[in-house]
Design a protein around this nucleic acid. Structure first.
Lengths: 308, 308
DNA sequence: CTGAAAGCGCTAACAA
DNA sequence: TTGTTAGCGCTTTCAG
């Protein structure tokens, strides 16, 4: 019998197995946008360790849209995914947030495991990096280069990640006897285009920062482009520091100085936590992965600017 | 009863439904690397229309590795995915290719649907763009700018996509009374770094092309960087044309002149074909989506070069 | 038109 | 050890 099975190259039906075992070996991965390189890196890290452990990942993009986000949890519930790992913060507010929390609770009540790689409503991440440390690295680099007026280019206002970032930046600046004036917090929609637009706006400003740290490398690349188009030389007139160190960061011009986040490892970590929890393990405290400054070309010494 | 269900926000068990319906509503998506922006765009296109039709996509990256590729088909068979759409050509050769074909046949024998968005062993794609037309657009642009020695930067040798590309280029050049000399076919591993490396090599060459068309935008961005580092100005000393028009193409410097492929639409198309086939529809001929040249900054007029 | 029963492919518990 | 059976949550069929 077994020989026959082998000969036919029999592949056991995971669906049926899942039905009886009450385990589908499916784990959902939710990101804002799979097209963003850092999200894809994270997804790959998740996929790799999932695969090594017999799990299959199913990725969903929310597009930072609350409705989509809600739909996704429903689908995950329908699929009876064993776990879901959130690689992005939520876009839900008010009623939608309540709804999301309710759905998530139902998911957990049904035995589902949730792990967070980003801040989520009233819950910190299970694994992440210290935003404070990362921002500290960026600011120290800039300050070391003589910058005193340093700004922060953020993603969408209202997102938890943005709030955490702004807060960390404020703290870090304060610790260095610098202040993050309100006009130094530059909000964007979190896209490359948003970065480009903010750089254009910056170029027209009289008292602009001499250096900025960006919420992520994509936005930073947009800033690079916008600055160039507006005749603002990087790093001579504006220093920019990115976040994540995506594969392309070393290839743009000027090459991006950025704070490296070990995205693959973070994904791997997240999946390990999910598997551990699925195996009945207790939730441990937050795991922090190390960050590291990667010095390239986009940040340089501050130059005295004369009044126009 | 229904009221109670609604109140409990009941989510039907897709797994169980799949068991009886012999439909899992799962469709596999296989790409070389989800981190590559064009692959992610394609995946998003697939995901979107899948979702609209009640299907869920499960993405897998092969890393252009034959073993992984084989594993993926097995998993897909185990999962009883309704369909699989190949967004990349195969990395299998010889025995592995035979094995792959056998696995694929078993998948189909079990009622699975396969759709191809890239050339596959002895089978053309179900939906794609005309490589010839795309290459023609690129070459015509370069020729129109006065280039006569134009090279081709390819992905890995041996891949079907590479073969198709080289063949198309040869045809196109011939039709313009130009020849694609062997030394004008520059093979890379298909990564950004590969592009950078080839540009470095090019810079050291005496009789190098004045313009190159690249297998994809990522490689092209690598070329941009490598050329710059080697003191080769783009487009003054070297014109480069990319392929796909990924979101970042407009933001690198110089902004990439490229042949736009409607990746989202292609993904949507692919999923529609899969759904059509799943519904018992007959396989139609190959669907071709339009390509379009996007002129930006990386290709410029050819300049007479004096012998060194 | 509503309600009971059979069965999808597997696993786990039990019987031989 | 090996073989049999019940049942996972649904859908579909058939009887009421």
């Amino acid at each position: 019998v077994l020989d026959a099975a082998e000969q036919l190259d029999f592949a056991p039906n995971f669906v049926a197995r899942g039905l009886v075992a009450q385990r589908t070996y499916l784990v959902g991965v939710v990101v804002h946008d799979l097209v963003a390189e850092y999200a894809a890196e994270l997804a790959r890290g998740l996929e790799e360790t999932a695969e090594e452990n017999g799990f299959t990942t199913v990725a969903f993009s929310t597009d930072a849209d609350a409705r989509r986000e809600l739909d996704i949890v429903r689908r995950l519930r329908s699929l009876r995914a064993d776990a879901v790992v959130y690689a992005c913060s939520t876009a839900c507010h008010g009623d939608e947030l309540d709804e999301l929390i309710a759905q998530l609770r139902r998911f957990e009540d049904a035995g589902g495991v949730i792990v967070r790689l980003a801040p989520h409503p009233s819950v910190g991440p299970d694994a992440s990096v210290s935003t404070r440390k990362a921002v500290g690295l960026a600011v120290d680099h800039l300050v070391g280069l003589g910058h005193r007026r340093v700004g922060l280019v953020t993603g969408p206002e209202g997102m938890d990640t943005t709030k955490v970032l702004v807060h960390a930046m404020r703290e870090v600046m304060k610790a260095r006897d610098l202040t993050l004036a309100p006009e130094l917090v530059l909000a964007t929609d979190g896209t490359v285009e948003g970065g480009r637009a903010i750089a254009t706006a910056l170029a027209a400003q009289r008292r602009r920062p001499t250096g900025v740290v960006c919420a992520d490398d994509l936005v930073a690349i947009g800033v690079l482009r916008g600055a160039h188009d507006a005749g603002l030389a990087v790093p001579e007139h504006l220093s920019v520091v990115g976040f994540y160190d995506i594969p392309l960061a070393a290839y743009v011009r000027p090459a991006l100085t950025t704070v490296r986040v070990p995205l693959r490892e973070l994904g791997a970590m997240g999946m390990q936590v999910a598997i551990w929890l699925l195996g009945g393990g207790a939730r441990k405290g937050r795991l922090n992965l190390p960050v590291e400054l990667v010095v390239r070309e986009s940040a340089g010494p501050a130059r005295a600017r004369r009044a126009r």
